[in-house]
């Protein structure tokens, strides 16, 4: 029926291909250059992790790809090609058609993302009615199926529940059911397990991975938990202050991080640290992206390996091994 996963992963054309994307926000205190020259690609059946501190532009990047940027935001350059369609040039109606059906997003806070005064089953029906040709007589059955697919116990009863009646883990599952109801080919999961217990987190992540494998979805996992990314991603993209600083297959990134920021990020993660003293901190903060005099390497002010050229010369990207790219003049 379909080609095996491996063939998909090797397919020459990625499902989502972002090239040199730039995004700016106009604010009263100046222009925020939130994303600059970002390139990344996601293939069918592949899970790509996007990691970085808050404010590094992880969410904004994918909001701009899906055309749900805040009104103050603007794509300043580059392209985001999804299955042959350039999303940055697509009309709002084309994007609206695509969102929910072909590309779905799981938002950070399910309680805020769900409609508080509509039954969860109804909310799934809304998506099905909008994006699929499901006859209205079958909507209810399909919504219950969608709830059952994410292993919500007793889906017939939960169909009638309002979000406030469900626990955080169940709300998150409803959110996933909603995103997956139309079998999208691209799933963007933005911190899908923040605020959940470790046990629930494991269950939710296992579920996303299982559905992704079964439906050969391309999955993007946005997270600041490196441990989570290590467990569930094939490749990891590290972002810092609106730049992609390093991209590598997961095992390679952890075995040999090349960018000083990645190395520091790995060292701040409590998992695996033997004692508190082994837990290093990253000095400084993200630079203010409104500044006119931003250095070319936006990490240079926090970096102990910086040299004059890091500030004055354009950022260069080096490919070490296949698929391991680092945007640094003095990589580790």
């Amino acid at each position: 029926m379909s080609a095996p996963l491996i063939a998909d992963a090797d397919h020459p054309v990625p499902l989502l291909d972002v090239q040199s994307l730039g995004v700016e926000f106009q604010t009263r205190s100046g222009t925020v250059r939130a994303i600059q020259d970002v390139s990344l690609s996601v293939r069918r059946g592949e899970t790509v992790g996007v990691v970085g501190e808050s404010g590094s532009g992880k969410s904004v990047l994918f909001y701009s790809v899906l055309g749900i940027l805040d009104a103050a935001g603007r794509v300043t350059g580059g392209r985001a090609v999804f299955g042959g369609l350039d999303l940055t040039a697509a009309s709002p109606s084309e994007l609206a058609e695509l969102r929910g059906r072909e590309a779905a997003m799981i938002f950070q806070n399910p309680r805020a993302a769900l409609n508080p005064i509509r039954k969860v089953g109804r909310q799934i029906e809304d998506v099905l009615a909008r994006h699929t040709s499901t006859p209205s007589a079958q909507l209810r059955a399909r919504a219950i199926e969608a709830l059952a697919a994410v292993r919500i116990p007793d889906p017939e009863r939960r169909y009638h529940a309002y979000p406030f009646e469900l626990s955080g883990g169940l709300c998150q599952r409803v959110m996933i059911a909603l995103s997956l109801a139309c079998s999208p080919s691209l799933l963007i999961a933005d911190e899908p397990t923040t605020g959940l217990d470790v046990t629930t987190q494991a269950a939710v992540m296992d579920l996303i991975r299982e559905l992704a494998t079964r439906r050969r979805m391309a999955t993007v996992l946005i997270t600041h938990d490196l441990g989570l990314a290590a467990d569930y991603c094939d490749r990891i993209v590290v972002m810092h202050a609106g730049h992609v600083v390093e991209t590598a297959p997961t095992a390679q990134l952890f075995a040999k991080p090349r960018h000083p920021y990645t190395a520091r990020l790995v060292a701040t993660t409590p998992h695996g640290a033997q004692s508190l003293s082994a837990l290093a901190a990253i000095p400084g903060n993200l630079p203010d992206l409104r500044r006119a005099d931003l250095p070319n390497c936006r990490f240079s002010e926090r970096c102990d390996r910086k040299e004059a050229a890091c500030v004055s010369e354009p950022l260069t990207t080096t490919e070490f091994e296949a698929g391991h790219r680092v945007a640094c003049r003095r990589p580790l």
Binding site: V198, T199, D206, D225, L226, G227, A230, A251, H271
Partner: peptide, 23 residues
């Protein structure tokens, strides 16, 4: 044991995950 095995970042360690079923 189940709580500890649910801590992310252990996939490479070869540890067998314990998954709790149900509520």
């Amino acid at each position: 044991r189940a709580l500890l095995s649910a801590i992310p970042g252990q996939a490479g360690a070869g540890a067998q995950r314990i998954r709790l079923e149900g509520d």
